[in-house]
């Protein structure tokens, strides 16, 4: 079964994505915050990642860099963020994010975009 890791500090986001993605047939693991996300990245091999950029205990961009540079993984990453700065979006894409969805978001849109990213 295709597995997806959702990293976000907001339990409302992880809850809603878990339910919608699971109902679409994916196995979902959630991690609330940067530290939990980093641990989950190091201990598992998800097929795709949904990543929040702004978390109280660390930046999603740092997690993305950790994934691409240190762990040398090409796992598709969909960035989910309420940040409206165009530069932040561009930076995330430059650092290897595969797609970007802004908050507030539609869970159906996230599911559709993830489906496109998955092999």
């Amino acid at each position: 079964m295709t597995s997806i890791l959702v990293v976000d500090d907001d339990p409302a986001v992880t809850n809603v994505l878990k339910l919608f993605l699971e109902s679409s047939g994916y196995a979902v693991v959630t991690a609330q915050g940067f530290v939990a996300g980093k641990k989950a990245l190091e201990s598992s091999l998800p097929d795709a990642i949904v990543l929040d950029l702004n978390m109280p205990d660390g930046l999603g961009l740092d997690l993305l860099s950790h994934l691409r540079v240190q762990l040398q993984r090409k796992t598709p990453v969909l960035v989910l963020s309420g940040n409206r700065q165009e530069s932040t979006v561009l930076r995330a894409l430059e650092m290897g994010a595969n797609d970007f969805v802004r908050k507030p978001f539609s869970p159906r849109e996230v599911t559709a975009r993830l489906r496109k990213l998955l092999p």
Binding site: D10, A12, V16, P104, F105, S106, P107, R108, E109
Partner: peptide
């Protein structure tokens, strides 16, 4: 909890 959910969702779910 309801407001937190509304805050993050738009589209049909919103």
């Amino acid at each position: 909890a309801l407001l937190a959910l509304r805050e993050i969702l738009h589209g049909d779910e919103g």
